[in-house]
Design a protein around this nucleic acid. Structure first.
Lengths: 209, 209
DNA sequence: TAACTATTGTTGCATTTGCAACATTTTACA
DNA sequence: TGTAAAATGTTGCAAATGCAACAATAGTTA
């Protein structure tokens, strides 16, 4: 896992947090944290716990945009939050550290020689998020539910030789991630099995081709 | 437009390019440039011209992932290029500068006081790309062609009071961007007009609600 | 452990959409 | 400027999908 504080000592992290004027808050489960946050440019780092960014469209349909856990970041750097349709819900007790965007290049911080490590970590995190978003776009642009599913399965299997993996999310969440109707998706999975393309055992899936 | 070299003088840019060991190439129109590039971690900056990142899926369907022009960046930082299904086509004569990812934090560069500006520009560019990708995901997760179109139209109108805008791309490209069949999209636009939700004049569109 | 909640599975049906196959108009460029 | 290429518009039809309304499990928590 990439982490904003990777390759930094505890001492350096402490110094960094101080210079960045970072604030840390702890939230209970099932809290909408964005309602409490001013929506200026900020970076939020998940110190521990798990949150979901949820988009509610004009029709009230909800889509999970991102499921984020320890070490990952969100905020205006990653998502335009200036729209009321976005909420951010804690899925368990979660600790979050906020940094104002402008602070990441303040006069004091750049005097520290470990600053370069911090910058590199931040760039890597943004890059990882971007790669994830783009990978999801690849799936969402598939024309059929079948192709979305197979694309997702192939991504999960990657270059593994056994062509087998266990889904890290529920089928319900997968339907949301691929933006298809859950029952239609289940139907399509049945067809995939009938056609001998996959084999499933609960959330364990094996590609047969 | 954000630019990797914004707020830097020509002299500083020159120095930066040198320290970053940047390489510049010029390509003719309609060239697949990724075929020439080693696929290690790099950042490509479009100095001038216009390129499209095109994804070809298992079935041979092509999707325009990104349409990039002067000042914008691409590369492994923004997109996993280690897959053969992605091509990068110049849409006109295009000049591109390549920087190896590891060079952006090399020992020499960090001695320059303008380095911080460069870093901030890079972070801003990545952030902008990420916001664009996430905005597209919002549209792609809409269930119907109608909702995708209205979402796109609303994004374009933004907070403008006259609720009117001229499409920056063709209808054909819009269909690709929203990942819907072009003819079905045209049909839906007709319905939108019949229902009195929009008015069109060529690529000029006005929201009527 | 009982009770509740979330997840998964199934199916009929109406609607939306992709696809194919055109005609027409606009744009690019030799 | 003439011609080829690209973009736009239209329509019938088959297929895919969303939606609704369930039943059956699995998982969670008081």
């Amino acid at each position: 896992m990439t982490n904003l504080f990777a390759n930094l000592s505890d001492k350096e992290i402490k110094k960094l947090m101080q210079v960045l004027k970072a604030n840390t808050f702890t939230y209970r489960k099932d809290v909408n944290i964005l309602s409490n946050v001013n929506k200026d440019d900020f970076i939020a780092i998940i110190d521990s716990g798990n949150i979901q960014l949820i988009y509610s469209d004009y029709n009230g349909n909800k889509t999970i945009i991102e499921d984020l856990s320890t070490g990952e970041i969100f905020g205006s750097l990653t998502y335009s939050l200036n729209n009321d349709e976005l909420s951010c819900i804690t899925k368990e007790e979660t600790q979050i550290t906020y940094i104002e965007y402008n602070q990441i290049t303040n006069d004091e911080i750049i005097k520290n020689d470990f600053y370069i490590i911090f910058v590199k970590n931040l760039i890597k995190l943004l890059s990882d998020q971007l790669n994830r978003s783009n990978q999801r776009i690849e799936l969402l642009t598939q024309r059929t539910t079948r192709d979305k599913l197979l694309g997702y399965f192939r991504n999960q299997v990657g270059s593994k030789s056994n062509k087998s993996f266990t889904m890290p999310i529920t089928y319900t969440e997968l339907a949301s991630y691929l933006s298809v109707d859950r029952s239609s998706m289940t139907r399509e999975i049945t067809y995939l099995k009938e056609d001998g393309l996959i084999k499933t055992n609960g959330r364990k899936i094996t590609l047969l081709y």
